[in-house]
Design a protein around this nucleic acid. Structure first.
Lengths: 151, 151
DNA sequence: TCTTGATCTAAAGTTAGCTTTAGATATTAA
DNA sequence: TTAATATCTAAAGCTAACTTTAGATCAAGA
């Protein structure tokens, strides 16, 4: 296979619609791979564009950069990711999306149940609960739901 | 109607499972109403527990405190919110949840489409796009999707 | 009344996720 | 070769959303 073309930081920035400083930041945080030119400038495999896009989308979903690091482990370090690599990552990510959707649906019905029942005491409300939060740490869960009613 | 009982900051903190400092912070940010005792301590209507729960849930959904301020405008300032008030807020919030679910579904199918088509160039990828972001500012949209394919 | 625990204020500190700055060096186009 | 433009580094700055600190005051029970 022909070696992947290397591109400048400005190119990555433009293509992903972000500031150069952001790309440099991600590079320094080891979120995206790069090498140096003889002069010391960073150059990136073109596939980094995809990687950056993924990072932005995941951030938008509420993941921290640290969590995204973990997700990106599904991609190879030392070679340009191929279709299969991306498919693997996408599958993992997809599961997270599904989970999120499920959580939102639960939130929705919890809200509906609460309004319906008019429980004003909150005595039994477990929609947001610090204990649950601790318990679910690491699962990637962001919406912490318990038994209805809610609020 | 009997006046609603006023409770201490510690009570609110315990019931919502948060630090006292957080409740004080929200109070100072005008996110929750309170009055002072003669001695100067804050006291809160019991309904503030609900309000705090709502704030936490909304934050979990990705809203900033500033955005939550706006959402909370649906609740009355000078009296304890009743069932109808909460129902109104819940309806607004529900719409946001629905939108979010729709966005996630779109993201899911975009991902599926991308993996399927194997577009490695990203030339046409619009999943995350700064321009779109600007354009949608204020709509509460957090997931910015364009035409597939994605990544 | 005394003491213990809760609360107060104001200011400073913290973390994540970036951007900005300043001054130097690289790269590219004419 | 010479500008003009792009990048570099390290350090400082910035915003949101909190927590911590220190020292003082309040409130409640024995």
């Amino acid at each position: 296979m022909p070696p992947e073309p290397l591109v400048s930081i400005g190119f990555i920035a433009k293509r992903t619609g972000n500031a150069v400083s952001l790309i440099r930041y991600y590079a320094n945080q080891q979120l995206i791979p790069f090498v140096r030119t003889e002069g010391g400038n960073r150059v990136f495999p073109r596939s980094v564009i995809r990687r950056v896009s993924f990072i932005l989308i995941a951030q938008n979903m509420g993941y921290s950069l640290e969590e995204i690091q973990l997700l990106l482990r599904a991609l190879p370090d030392n070679r340009t990711p191929n279709k299969k690599d991306w498919a693997r990552l996408s599958e993992i990510f997809n599961a997270h999306i599904e989970q999120r959707i499920a959580e939102l649906n639960q939130l929705k019905s919890s809200l509906a149940g609460c309004i319906g029942c008019g429980c004003l005491s909150l005595e039994k409300c477990r929609l947001y609960n610090k204990e649950d939060k601790m318990a679910s740490e690491g699962s990637g869960a962001r919406f912490l739901l318990g038994d209805s009613p809610v609020l």
